[in-house]
């Protein structure tokens, strides 16, 4: 059985808990007889629920028969999984070598300054989470940052201000 990646799309805002669990249960049963698929299951969990809370970790352990200590160990090992909810929009600054050489640090500082949060933190209104990411493979456009799926290229301090202002405008439209 090949579950489409679309099944993991986050619909947190529109979906009730009950629906999320129902969707997640079908994922788990699809993987039931396959060996070593915990990481794949966790990808779906994060997609469906937005994060993998301690309660959800227990739920996964119970459903799969994998000890909760192992589930927790794997969740916290990988950077891709988060145990806390993230902001509505995720801002990522690429920290690949090319971006670093061309000034990614200044972008992080400017964003941190503007949003009043550090790396890994979420703004009080729950709107933005600021993250740094390893190479996204757009080295030719360095330095780059992304907001959700949109890539902004050759960013500098001034452009950061522009980008955030545009985001605000979009919000109010």
């Amino acid at each position: 059985m090949n579950i489409e990646l679309d099944a993991s799309k986050c619909c947190c805002a529109q979906e009730k808990d009950e629906q999320k669990y129902k969707r997640f249960d079908s994922v788990i049963s699809g993987y039931k007889d396959k060996e070593g698929n915990l990481i794949q299951i966790l990808h779906y969990a994060q997609g469906i629920f937005g994060c993998i809370s301690p309660e959800l970790q227990e739920y996964i352990a119970e459903k799969t028969g994998i000890p909760v200590s192992k589930v927790h160990g794997v969740v916290t090992f990988y950077a891709h999984f988060s145990t806390e909810p993230k902001g509505e929009h995720i801002i990522k600054v690429c920290m690949g070598t090319a971006c670093f050489v061309l000034g990614a640090k200044d972008i992080v500082d400017a964003l941190s300054d503007k949003l009043g949060i550090g790396v890994g933190e979420t703004t009080k209104d729950g709107k933005y989470t600021l993250e740094v990411t390893r190479c996204i493979g757009a080295c030719g456009l360095a330095p780059v940052m992304t907001i959700d799926d949109v890539v902004y290229q050759q960013v500098d301090k001034k452009k950061v201000e522009q980008i955030l202002n545009n985001e605000e405008v979009k919000e109010h439209e």
């Binding site: 990481i39 794949q40 966790l42 990808h43 090992f77 990988y78 950077a79 891709h80 999984f81 390893r134």
Partner: peptide, 8 residues
């Protein structure tokens, strides 16, 4: 296909 989860 197995998908990684962000660990160098």
């Amino acid at each position: 296909v197995r998908i990684g989860a962000g660990a160098f």
